[in-house]
Nucleic acid binder design. Structure first.
Lengths: 255, 255
DNA sequence: TCCATTCACTTGTCATGAGATGTTCACTTG
DNA sequence: CAAGTGAACATCTCATGACAAGTGAATGGA
């Protein structure tokens, strides 16, 4: 498969940023330099820079050399998918305790969300996720069989399941998250150490590949005093990109 | 201020799409046609098309004329800011009942969110928002004085406050939304017709201009059985754009 | 009638050249 | 010593030309 030149330039620069070689706030080489370095004309180079800018990785303005963005969006995106990654980037210590892992028939809702017949087995995982040792979220995940098989070779208490699956080549690319609020049931209350009926922030996620193949369904319930979601959004036609992330709850939030 | 040619082409096409002149799925003129029509070379035209594609308004692929996207993102963005607009686009009837409107000193939290001293007056508005006549959300909004003044010339029971303010030139451009869950207090319970302690989905929004000037703070509480939030997200470097919107709750959501 | 091929047309990619416009900083001037 | 000036340098804008690659409809043969 032929790789266009601007694509090559783009990924090359991106890798240098993500690897830390180009730190946040650092200046990129000028267009002219990039041209000679890649043996390209200004067209592809500008195309690559423009794409990286749209991606949120760099910031540009006329007359100034592009600089590496201080709040890289790529990080936020990964953070939104991976609890461990998120907690790490905010400088806290993530933790997880596996309550249950099982291969079983899915219930109606899980089967419907995964888009499979109820007769097809799924791997279900129930974990308590914590921040600095304090329980913050209860995670009920169901994987389709082909992905779930990989779980039995993984210590679900050890770290980021998401990174593990990505590393094993599972194409967890797209996520659809439905957000609402539910009252803690007996299980929630027990594992999150709250009273039954306490309001919890629930995020139901359906993760699929770029082809649209559904791979995972998860029902995550957050203690709202420990974690919340944050959405940035811009109207009109600004170049500002929307982004979604989690954040630690601020004290005094309940009016 | 000088308007670049590619910007001109871009807004021209965008207007033709948003006005409905170019329906969803319709084919755009070819690059060559656009070039002659605007007296431009391919550069600016391609730049405009690429921007519109990134905006999500059109879809392109090699060899085929660009077509108007069937799920325009611009709509979703506006929908996320305006309750009325959202309810309209899903084919329901929005409603609102103003419970209170007042000019007063802000409490600590409101003052902090708006970034103003507690001695500065704000206009506070309390409204019940409904879908097809059923109460779905309770909205507590505080406006800085300069914006709030406009409210007294507006019938807050009549329709979209957001559109009214935009029409009056208020630059409501950027929004930061913090999402969590709270238990319904006595007021919430009364106005939303639920029991005290019922979990509600809360969205706290700080709206500001592109310059970063804070204009509005809102605390919206949704009945999770009537409305929920939905977030689409894509990892990696796909062209897929993230978006955030509201949606009507599906029955049987509580596992 | 059906199917493979051809061909005109489309967008994607890339090079080169040139002027406009914003930034920065050393240098001049008061 | 501070303020203003200007040149070097950067990106932004736009034009022109050329080839590669995908699309779709017309064409022609089986």
């Amino acid at each position: 498969m032929r790789v266009p030149l601007h694509e090559l330039v783009r990924t090359s620069i991106r890798e240098r940023i993500l690897s830390g070689e180009l730190a946040a706030g650092a200046a990129l080489p000028s267009e002219a330099e990039l041209c000679t370095r890649f043996g390209a004309s200004r067209g592809p180079v500008r195309q690559a820079i423009s794409a990286l800018s749209a991606e949120g990785l760099i910031e540009t303005s006329q007359g100034k050399v592009p600089t590496v963005s201080r709040a890289p969006l790529a990080q936020s995106i990964d953070d939104f998918f991976s609890f461990s990654s998120w907690v790490h980037t905010i400088g806290r210590v993530p933790g997880q305790r596996t309550v249950e892992i099982a291969l079983r028939r899915p219930d109606e809702i899980v089967a419907e969300r995964l888009g499979i017949p109820a007769s097809e087995n799924v791997v279900e995982l129930l974990r308590v996720r914590s921040i600095d040792g304090q329980a913050a979220m209860l995670e009920r995940t169901a994987f389709v069989a082909v992905v779930g098989r990989l779980l039995f070779e993984f210590d679900t208490d050890s770290g980021s399941l998401f990174e593990y699956l990505i590393g094993r080549g599972v194409p967890l690319d797209r996520g659809e998250h439905v957000i609402d609020a539910v009252a803690a049931d007996a299980t929630d209350a027990d594992l999150l150490a709250v009273a039954v009926g306490t309001p919890l922030l629930r995020v139901q996620r359906v993760t699929s590949s770029n082809d649209g193949e559904v791979l995972e369904y998860s029902d995550d319930r957050y203690r709202p005093d420990r974690a919340e979601l944050i959405v940035h959004n811009a109207r009109s036609h600004s170049t500002q990109r929307p982004f979604v992330a989690r954040q630690i709850s601020q004290p005094g939030g309940t009016t």
